[in-house]
Amino acid sequence: MASWPTGVAVVTSTWQGNPVGCTVNSLMSWSVDPPSVAVALNSAGRTVQAVRASGRFGISILDWARQDLCSRFAGGAQRDRFTGVDLLGAEDVPLVRDSLHALACTVQKTFAWSDHTLVLGLPSRIYGTGRETPLVLHGRALHRLPRAGVDASEAAPDSSLARSSLRLDTPSAS
């Protein structure tokens, strides 16, 4: 599967009052009506336990500028993953403030299969940062895509806000 390019995101929730999260590349749009998403999480991980217990989760889609979070949230102690990360607390779900887009979601259904759990969720809010350089995993390496309509040699890491048909908010600096 290393030859299959995918986006990279951080899935978050809360466990006993503390934020928990992990890196994922198994994220997809599940349906348009109603707008919903699906993400696969390690069934033995703390993140899926928190998602099940709280019924809420966040998805922070990483852009090139936040590639450091990919490896940070892929392993190590949960308490260390959030150190120094500016969070946006949306509807009791921690979200990475400087991500490409961030979604606050409510769990609709979970499916356990082998060593992973597929979580289906309905986004209640979507935030955007104004960046358009998604972080992509391909060939076991991180890459960035150029903005749509821009030659790859002209790609810049910051550009205009991408729009969504669901409520799109730009988080305040507070």
Rank of each mutant, 00 (worst) to 15 (best):
I126E: 12
R81F: 13
G55N: 01
L166K: 05
L69V: 03
V48T: 05
G128F: 15
S3K: 11
V93R: 02
R72D: 04
G121R: 03
G75A: 10
R140G: 00
I61D: 07
S31G: 04
L100R: 10
V51A: 06
C70H: 02
A90M: 08
W64P: 05
A77R: 10
A50F: 04
P134H: 13
T47A: 07
A77E: 13
L142D: 04
L137P: 04
E91P: 04
V119N: 00
H143E: 14
V10C: 10
A148C: 12
L95G: 05
V11C: 00
Y127I: 12
T14G: 08
T110F: 09
Q16I: 14
T14N: 12
C70L: 01
R56P: 09
L142H: 11
S165I: 14
R125K: 10
L120E: 05
P157Y: 12
G89D: 13
V20Y: 07
C70I: 08
V150F: 14
R131F: 15
D63H: 15
D63W: 05
G75Q: 11
F111S: 11
A156P: 07
A2F: 02
V85N: 02
R125L: 12
S164Q: 03
H116R: 11
A90H: 01
S3L: 12
S165K: 13
V39Q: 11
A148R: 14
W113M: 00
F111V: 11
A148E: 14
S60W: 00
S43I: 00
I126M: 04
T110D: 06
L27D: 11
S54D: 01
L118I: 08
V39K: 01
S164C: 07
G45Y: 10
A141R: 11
